[in-house]
Design a protein around this nucleic acid. Structure first.
Length: 595
RNA sequence: GCACUCGUAGCUCAAUUGAAUAGAGCAUCUGACUACGGAUCAGAAGGUUCGGGGUUUGAAUCCCUGCGAGUGCACCA
């Protein structure tokens, strides 16, 4: 049940009846607070077919709607804007429907499948703040698509191949002294990351030593022994040298274990993992086929290129002169493999930072040239960098904020705040621990998701955890308060059935307003999917919480003497709590019963 | 240098994709607790939407231009 769709169809009928013409694009929007009504039809575009002034046009439509639609009770016209009030019966029906469907906001299955890739980190460094935005975004967009009725496949590509992992391996071999996660007590990804840093330190030291001995900078970069070792290991890896492969497997295994712990904490998961070491060969095959078909071309040195100058881009290398593959080659292979594995998917979403926009533009063009028509349905969900208040965070400059550390800090801060306010008396230690995790992570997720993904953003940890304002904890708190009210109603044996709601015929303005917000959920779920933007949902969850607070302040629920109205308000409270819970769920945020 | 993205209140973000007087939160100021969770609510103040042109009934939004910030332009991933 969707009020807007219902209203649109009524307006469509009216326009057809009054002006003898049909219009596809009706502009229906929420009415501004200063005017009476809930929905507004913008009538300027209609003047073309009505051949009358905007006000006259609006008046004709409004009058006809009140007379014939059965759902519009009143209208007023301001300039070209037709403000419509729906009858209270419509709102009561709406609440009945929502109250009967605790899963309100979930659209019926549409039989379509979609694949969403996210996370996809390098295996040589631990996860950082940027990965948090990526993971929360990808996971949330997946949930939003599920809510739209899609069957969603969550995947990631693991960058397990290449010189970067060999650097960690080389450093570990030289200085590791057999250290393992078990022996050091370090998380696997942290341990491997440590040796990646070790490599860099040793490499730089060796370069400057060679330079003081008289080498040029360039020579030194090539001749540094540790770099030679890493390159040698890469060669051995490609030749499937057993010892190198075994070390590679071991160290990658450590990283995966470490990442696994972090993913679990973040609350994200994957249906299937793709590994570059498995897909780059397929990519290579496809590129060679493309050469035969004349889609790509070979230079004299043997390297393979694609010419995109006709598309306004430049030429791009696909295979090196020694025949080995590059990043693009692997991504071609991965994309094709995924459509083979999941032939029914209607498209693929890549959650990757905006610094790779050019790469994906090229990738989709190439796939298109290779004749894959699904290339049109691949989408790069591009997101901006996350800055911190204390200067900017850039992974290349080493001032990264570690994901595990940040999550720890958020939970600690949540605990500190909660204890200061001291309402935890009745909770067991287990419950409080769960609560702190909920609010700490909720604060983090909400703050990272409330901003339009495309935009670069500033993460303020202190602001994010506040219980006031546009934050996760504020919404969680509001939910807990509503649940307290419902518990009280239950203790008074006030159980409300759907039929009880029919008894109410006249609503308070505050109730109408709040029902209007509540009824917008389905529309928001659709909008969020269309824009690939959890921010739409975050804004909506906040709106629900705020609306309830206002309602609560203006209408004391238990002071009501009319039992029908009392029941109505309790049902309404419960429906709002459910909607908050569900919308926050789409962001991967749990809401507590009490806090 | 070329390409792409962005620039909105002191700060962090919105604006249903071209509509009404550009909205929220934080911070600041003023009010409301004998109550069901006041961790709330009501109100005030805060804007030349970076500058300048243009398109039209109408522009933060579209086009041109200047300034500022960021990112990308490897036989790296």
């Amino acid at each position: 049940m969707n009020l807007e769709i219902l209203l649109r169809s009524e307006i469509q009928k009216t326009v057809a009846a009054v002006f003898n013409q049909t219009v596809d694009n009706l502009q229906v929007q929420p009415t501004n607070a200063e005017f009476e009504g809930s929905h507004t039809l913008v009538c300027f575009p209609l003047t073309k077919i009505s051949r009358k002034g905007p006000e006259e046009t609006a008046k004709l439509v409004g009058e006809h709607l009140v007379q014939h639609s059965g759902i519009v009770s009143k209208y007023n016209v301001v300039k070209g804007f037709l403000n419509l009030s729906l009858s209270d019966k419509v709102w009561v029906d709406m609440l009945q429907y929502i109250y009967a469907h605790p899963n309100y906001g979930q659209l019926p299955a549409n039989g379509e499948e979609i694949m969403i890739e996210y996370s996809s980190p390098n295996t040589n460094k631990p996860l950082h703040l940027g990965h948090l935005r990526n993971n929360f975004l990808g996971w949330s967009v997946s949930e939003i698509y599920k809510a739209n009725g899609y069957n969603v496949h969550k995947v990631q590509i693991i960058n397990d191949r290449g010189i970067h992992i060999c650097k960690s391996m080389a450093a570990w071999k030289l200085y590791g002294d057999g250290e393992t996660p078990a022996s050091s007590g370090l998380k696997g990804d942290k341990l491997v990351g440590k040796y990646y840093v070790e490599f860099d330190k040793a490499y730089k030291a060796q370069i400057s030593a060679l330079v003081t001995k008289g080498s040029t900078q360039e020579e030194a970069e090539k001749e540094a022994p540790i770099m030679k070792l890493a390159s040698e290991m890469l060669r051995q890896w490609e030749q499937k040298d057993p010892e190198t492969l075994s070390l590679w497997k071991t160290m990658n295994g450590w990283v995966y274990d470490g990442f696994g712990v972090t993913y679990k904490r973040m609350g994200v998961d994957f249906e299937k993992l793709y590994y570059e070491s498995d897909t780059y060969l397929l990519g290579k095959e496809e590129v060679l086929k493309g050469v035969e078909k004349g889609i790509f071309f070979k230079k004299e040195d043997g390297s393979v290129w694609v010419d995109l100058t006709a598309d306004g881009l430049d030429q791009k290398v696909l295979l090196r002169s020694d025949g080995t593959s590059v990043y693009m080659t692997q991504d071609i292979g991965t994309a094709i493999l995924r459509f083979r594995d999941f032939p029914k998917i209607v498209g693929q979403v890549y959650t990757v930072g905006n610094e790779q926009e050019y790469h994906f533009k090229v990738l989709f063009l190439i796939l298109n040239k290779l004749g894959y028509d699904w290339a049109k349905r691949c989408f790069h969900l591009s997101y901006g960098m996350v800055d911190l208040p204390s200067g900017k965070m850039k992974s290349r400059e080493g001032t990264v904020v570690d994901a595990d550390d940040l999550m720890d800090e958020m939970v600690e801060e949540a605990e500190k705040q909660s204890r200061e306010l001291g309402k935890l008396d009745e909770m067991s230690p287990d419950e409080t621990k769960r609560l702190f995790n909920m609010t700490g992570l909720g604060a983090l997720k909400f703050f990272l998701l409330k901003v339009d993904p495309k935009k670069r953003m500033l993460f303020d940890p202190n602001e994010s955890i506040q219980l006031q304002g546009f934050t996760g904890p504020f919404i969680q708190y509001t939910h807990a308060r509503i649940r307290a009210i419902i518990r009280k109603a239950e203790s008074m044996n006030l159980n409300v059935t759907v039929d009880d709601l029919r008894a109410v015929t006249v609503l308070e303005p505050a109730e109408r307003e709040a029902l209007q917000v509540l009824s917008a959920f389905e529309g928001k779920v659709k909008e969020a999917a269309k824009d690939y933007s959890p921010a739409v949902i975050a804004n909506y969850a906040y709106e629900l919480a705020k609306e309830y607070n206002q309602f609560y302040q203006s209408i004391p629920i238990f002071n009501e003497s009319d039992p029908a109205k009392l029941k109505f308000r309790i049902a309404f409270s419960k429906s709002i709590a459910d909607a908050i819970k569900r919308s926050m769920g789409l962001l991967g945020i749990e809401v507590p019963e009490r806090m």
